[in-house]
């Protein structure tokens, strides 16, 4: 069982959360020319690191807010959680 610290609600079990994937992926800027490669990188290509991973979770059975979580993909240790609009 993972225990995730929601910045809004406090420490909760993973059962209350829904996963949202890699949080470091950036959508190409709006109203600019986007190459196929940039779009491909945004939609499909992922680093999928073994170790520290910054990812999105939604506290779906709580405050329903999206948050950013820095977690180790091998040990599942959670180092830090912040609101989704903040940088880790």
């Amino acid at each position: 069982m993972l225990y995730i610290f929601c910045p809004h609600c406090g420490l909760r079990s993973q059962n209350e959360f829904s996963y949202g994937g890699d949080a470091t992926v950036k959508r190409p800027a709006l109203n600019k020319e986007v190459s196929d490669e940039q779009w491909n990188n945004f939609v499909y290509n992922r680093k999928s690191p073994r170790g520290k991973h910054v990812e999105l979770w939604q506290h779906i059975s709580g405050c329903r807010q999206w948050i950013k979580v820095q977690r180790d993909t091998v040990t599942h240790e959670i180092f830090k959680t912040v609101e989704a609009n903040k940088e880790i």
Binding site: S13, Q14, N15, R71, T73, V74, H76
Partner: peptide, 13 residues
């Protein structure tokens, strides 16, 4: 399990 993992072991939920 539903999130990126290299753990080779699972979680009970």
């Amino acid at each position: 399990d539903g999130y990126n993992s290299y753990a080779q072991r699972g979680n009970l939920p």
